[in-house]
């Protein structure tokens, strides 16, 4: 059965004067309508770049994009510019991190949202305005008929992001890509926005890709999670599986670094040592090896020489990981879990 969205071996390279920046390498994932995929990774891991490729935002730049992106049976990388332009905002929409800079300061919010509607629908200004007010109401903006004539700087941060969501969903897209939608907002507003997205997903049956560096958001919203590192998928599978049985040291590092607010609040924070790798000259072999604490458990010097393939996890199913460790679940249970959640390590997780 083919999925609504199917990305296969997506490659995005940026040729620069210093060399080729390999922002995305052989990325593959699938997503159905009504489902949410969380893409997690550090800054520079290729999360945004790979998702921008779905909308064709790299066209016209000097980026080299190859692979396959099938959306509802159409390969988005093979269509011409006019076709992809018609799909943007209608079949697939994107919302960005900072809603203030994402909107034009000189036009009213209503104008910009109506614009999104009128690009794809041949309606009068009045009809577009009515639809805009309806969407603003749907995303929870009070007094939408008055706020529709306000300018972006007159909205609060949370309301601006709601307005952006209204703008993205006004044409009922099948796929919504949310690039760090809550990073610029405070935590209480963040919860509201996530609730809103989930409501709208239920209502419109849209597929959602949520890009974030926050595992809490992933745990809350995502059905599947894709962990990216140095432009590649390093762990991919159902969220429940990955959060409980993670099998890649980078994922362990991400989970360990989440501060514990209920347990021992005096405990030290556990960061992942080192820095994100250069995408211009990534490390040989496994890109994570300079920061990995478990390379000694792998025979030979495999981690330093050979890039691991995506292989199924121990528990099987749809869970895959890119690592040379042969018994990650044991390593996890013995070394990592006691650090993250001491009270859980006794249970059979």
């Amino acid at each position: 059965m083919s999925s609504f969205l199917s990305v296969r071996d997506l490659v995005v390279h940026f040729p620069t004067v210093d060399g080729v920046v390999k922002a995305t390498e052989n990325l593959s994932y699938e997503l159905d309508r009504g489902q949410t995929l969380g893409i997690v990774g550090e800054s520079g891991s290729g999360k945004s770049v790979s998702s921008s490729a779905i909308l064709g935002l790299h066209r016209g730049t000097n980026a080299e994009v190859s692979g396959e992106i099938m959306l509802d049976g159409v390969d988005l990388l093979k269509v011409n510019d006019e076709t992809i332009r018609r799909k943007r905002g209608r079949e697939v929409a994107m919302i960005f991190q900072d809603p203030l800079s994402a909107m034009h300061p000189y036009y009213t919010v209503g104008n910009q949202i109506s614009e999104a509607y009128r690009v794809h629908n041949n309606v009068s200004r009045k009809q577009a305005r009515a639809r805009t007010v309806e969407m603003l109401d749907r995303v929870g903006i009070p007094q939408p008929d008055r706020r529709v004539d306000d300018y972006p700087h007159q909205f609060s941060g949370g309301m601006r992001q709601r307005a952006m969501i209204a703008m993205a969903l006004i044409n009922d897209p099948g796929l919504l890509i949310a690039d760090e939608p809550t990073t610029a907002l405070d935590v209480t507003v963040q919860a509201q926005i996530l609730d809103l997205l989930q409501d709208l997903q239920r209502e419109f049956n849209s597929a959602i890709i949520i890009i974030t560096h926050d595992l809490g958001v992933v745990a809350e919203m995502a059905d599947d999670v894709l962990v990216m590192y140095a432009g590649r998928a390093v762990e991919y599978g159902p969220t429940k599986e990955i959060l409980v049985h993670p099998e890649m040291p980078y994922t362990w590092g991400l989970l360990s670094s989440v501060p514990d607010v209920v347990g021992d609040t005096d405990a030290k924070l556990i960061p992942i040592r080192g820095n994100p790798p250069s995408l211009l000259t990534p490390p040989a072999g496994c890109a994570f090896h300079p920061r990995c604490d478990h390379t000694d458990k792998v025979p030979g010097r495999l981690c330093f020489t050979t890039l691991p393939e995506l292989t199924p996890a121990r528990a099987g199913g749809d869970h895959t990981k890119r690592c040379h460790l042969v018994n990650p679940d044991e390593v996890y249970a013995k070394e990592v879990l006691p650090e993250i959640a001491p009270e859980m390590s006794e249970e059979d997780a």
């Binding site: 799909k87 905002g89 960005f96 900072d98 994402a102 909107m103 034009h104 614009e115 690009v119």
Partner: peptide, 14 residues
């Protein structure tokens, strides 16, 4: 170079 141009592009504007 402004972000709102990226939004405009993502909306599908000509």
């Amino acid at each position: 170079g402004e972000d709102y141009l990226r939004t405009a592009k993502a909306k599908g504007l000509a």
